[in-house]
Simulated assay, not measured.
Amino acid sequence: MKFTNALTSTFVFPAAALSTMTAAAPLEPRDVYDPRVTYPHTGTVWIVGQRHNVTWDTSDAPVNITNPIGTIKLGANNIILPITLATGFSVLSGRHEVTVPDVDSGEYFLVFFGDSGDWSDTFTINSS
């Protein structure tokens, strides 16, 4: 099989190489996991610069999770902000420590990503 890229050159793949690429084993079925954030919750007040454990419920975790690596982002006014508080941790850990970012005082929420995003309750961040 021959592929041409106008910017580079022509590539030739032997038929045997292509059949090897397509003969991969089927993937195991996987489940989308959307754990419920348990902290912070309504009534929680964080202060800029403090450290807090974000927690989530792992009691209903499926056996095969599509994406077992978590990310926690900050949101406000129904918008996910470009502020990542943590990333690269196991969604099965049930907690991860974050530092409260330097943001204006106001109402915020967290979005916990693994397979899917789950929003925390709205809580308060104070800048002083």
Rank of each mutant, 00 (worst) to 15 (best):
T71D: 01
L7Q: 12
P35F: 01
V37R: 03
N64S: 06
T44N: 15
N64T: 06
M1C: 15
A61R: 04
W56K: 04
P29T: 08
Q50W: 11
A6H: 14
F113D: 03
S105Q: 03
W119A: 12
T122F: 11
D102E: 14
N126T: 13
V98A: 02
D115F: 00
T20C: 04
L110V: 01
Y108Q: 02
R95V: 11
E107Q: 09
R51L: 08
P40T: 05
V111N: 02
V12E: 15
D104P: 05
D121R: 03
E107F: 06
L27S: 14
I65E: 00
L110C: 02
D121H: 08
W46G: 04
A76M: 06
A16Y: 05
Q50D: 14
V12R: 14
T58K: 03
F113M: 02
T122G: 04
I83F: 02
G43K: 10
T20H: 04
L27Y: 13
S128Y: 09
N5Y: 13
G94N: 04
F11V: 15
S127C: 13
I69G: 04
T122I: 12
I80V: 15
T10M: 11
G88M: 03
V91D: 03
S128L: 07
I125A: 00
L92N: 06
A6R: 15
A24V: 13
K2W: 15
G49H: 07
F112M: 12
R36M: 13
I47F: 14
F112S: 08
V103F: 06
F3P: 09
R95G: 11
I69K: 08
V103D: 05
R30G: 05
R51M: 11
L18N: 07
L18K: 05
A23Q: 08
F123V: 09
P40F: 05
N126F: 09
V37T: 07
N53V: 10
V45Q: 08
T124P: 04
L7G: 12
S128D: 10
F123M: 10
R51F: 10
A76P: 01
G106T: 00
F109C: 03
G49P: 08
V45C: 05
T38W: 13
E107S: 11
V111L: 07
T10N: 12
T38E: 12
W46T: 05
W46M: 13
A16Q: 09
R95C: 09
T99V: 11
